[in-house]
């Protein structure tokens, strides 16, 4: 990739993109109008990436793109050409859940689970952005305000994020 030269694709044409998802490079042809969420779900089969509202409000489609959280229903697949994407499928390592996943499990931070992958990916970004110790206000306002849950009432989700913060801090001091 690098400094790619100008790229021009007509409305009826397809464009070849290369995207590194969960550590693996994929090459596919897509229509310019294809959304990243559809690319991840339909072309790559990564069905943790949910479509909730499709209008940029609910955060169910949240993934990490080049280190920042984005709503993948608000991004074109062709924009991800050359990018690194992380989805929920890429979090567990060697059959062991990520500490954020464990915290969601232990704190019972989900009911139907539809919103969960989005919440976990947004938490992943929040904790990479603000490692020290986000306050509850920072978790609610600055962290998870772009993710909606229709089941839990949020309380257990906040508890899970706090537990994840603690676990990640412990892991760091152990290293």
């Amino acid at each position: 990739m690098g400094m790619a030269a100008t790229l021009k694709v007509g409305p009826e044409e397809r464009v070849r993109i290369r995207v590194k998802v969960n550590g693996v490079w994929y090459e596919r042809e897509v229509e310019p109008r294809k959304l990243l969420v559809h690319f991840l779900r339909e072309d790559l089969g990564l069905t943790s990436v949910h479509v909730g509202c499709d209008t940029g409000h609910c955060g169910a489609c949240t993934v990490i793109m080049n280190g920042v959280s984005v709503k993948s229903c608000q991004v074109l697949a062709v924009q991800a050409d050359g990018a690194e994407i992380l989805t929920l499928e890429g979090l567990a390592k060697d059959g062991k859940l990520h500490p954020i996943q464990e915290a969601f499990w232990e704190k019972h931070a989900l009911q139907c689970g539809y919103c969960t992958p989005g919440f976990i990916m947004e938490t992943y970004w929040l904790l990479s952005e603000n490692p020290p110790n986000p306050t509850e206000e920072e978790i609610r306002r600055g962290g998870l305000s772009g993710n909606l849950c229709r089941c839990t009432g949020y309380q257990n989700i906040i508890e899970a994020v706090k537990l994840a913060v603690q676990r990640l801090r412990e892991l760091k001091t152990m290293q």
Partner: peptide, 9 residues
């Protein structure tokens, strides 16, 4: 889906 459009980078 958005309507069809071309793309120029």
């Amino acid at each position: 889906y958005p309507p069809k459009f071309g793309y120029i980078r």
